[in-house]
Structure formats: C-alpha cells, structure tokens
C-alpha cells in the first residue's frame, strides 16, 4: 500500500456476504450499480475466474453503447476475494487504459451487521506521470511545485 498511488475503501454493508458477492459476480446485478445513473452499463463479457474477461460498455441514451472497460480477472476466491486489472485486457494484452491503469482487490468478510467490504485500488507510477504529461511537465516538476507551494503558503508571497 503506497498512499501516493493507492486508495482503500472500507464499508460495512448491511446485507449478507453472499448477497454482496452475488451483486458483484452476477452480470445482471453488476451492471445495475457499476456506473452512475443515468449512464446505462451493459456487461459484454463476464467470467468471474482467474484470467476471465470483465468487459462492459456504456450508454447515455440506453440505445447506442460504447466501450467502457476491457479488463481481466486476476483472482477470484469464491465469496471472499476478487482481484481484477484493466492494465491487461480481456485478451490478456497489456493496455494503457483511460483514465488510469489499476488493479483492484475487493474483499468480502462476515461482519455482525452484514458484510465487511473492502477495496484496495493500486495504481502504477505511470498514472501520475500521465497527468504530468498532460500538463506539459517533465517528471520531477510535481515535487518542485509542491515544495514551492509549501514555501509560498508558509508565509505571504510577496516582494
């Protein structure tokens, strides 16, 4: 876990673990929550097993769909853990997906009030770099800028 590159989410969901697991692994359920309404998500290929495809498309009008995600499951432990990545597509080809390449690890555990649901999303250095490149900076300018900001905010910037 690298706090500059990774994020974690922990949530107690007030539903049985098996229900949360099904909502995640049954395509008809998955597509109902994966994308925010009014965008419509459609599962194109979904095989919850190591190496299996996780391919979705999306639509604003519910009629014409465009590709959304072409990812690959890395690990699926029944009822307990799912790991998938978009850095390898469903044909196992390395890709540079938009907005950023990531590996997501989702764990499901029993909790007295339902399900202890946790997500760890790991990003590569390339993710941060692509943002820098968009801004037209060479690597290294981010930290220089951060130092300048700290310096400037420590006291009033002036003459």
């Amino acid at each position: 876990m690298n706090p500059d590159l990774d994020l974690t989410i922990e949530r107690v969901i007030r539903a049985p673990r098996a229900s949360v697991w099904r909502a995640w692994t049954e395509p008809a359920s998955f597509e109902k929550w994966w994308l925010p309404a009014p965008t419509v998500c459609r599962v194109e290929r979904f095989e919850a097993r190591a190496g299996g495809p996780l391919v979705t498309s999306m639509s604003e009008d519910g009629v014409s769909f465009q590709p959304h995600m072409d990812a690959c499951f890395l690990l699926v432990e029944d009822g307990e853990r799912i790991v998938f990545t978009n850095a390898i597509d469903s044909a196992w080809r390395p890709t540079s997906p938009s907005p950023v390449p990531m590996t997501a690890e989702i764990t499901f555990a029993d909790h007295p009030e339902g399900t202890d649901y946790r997500v760890i999303v790991r990003h590569g250095d390339a993710a941060a770099r692509s943002v820098h490149e968009k801004l037209g900076f060479a690597a290294g300018w981010g930290s220089v800028t951060a130092q300048l900001a700290a310096l400037a905010e420590g006291r009033n910037v002036g003459a």
Binding site: D4, L5, L7, I9, R11, I13, R14, A15, S19, V20, A23, W24, S29, K32, W33, W34, P36, P99, V100, M102, A104, Y117, V119, V121, H123, A127, A128, V131
Partner: peptide
Amino acid sequence: WLAEQRRTWEQRTDRLDAFVT
C-alpha cells in the same frame, strides 16, 4: 487524479450498498 479515483470508487461502493440493501 488519485482523489478523483477515490470519488469514483466511493460512489461505486455507495451504489453497490444501495443495490444490495
């Protein structure tokens, strides 16, 4: 960019939560 990804995943978790409950 990381904050943006966090928002995406937080909201996704909200929707999963709402869906199963």
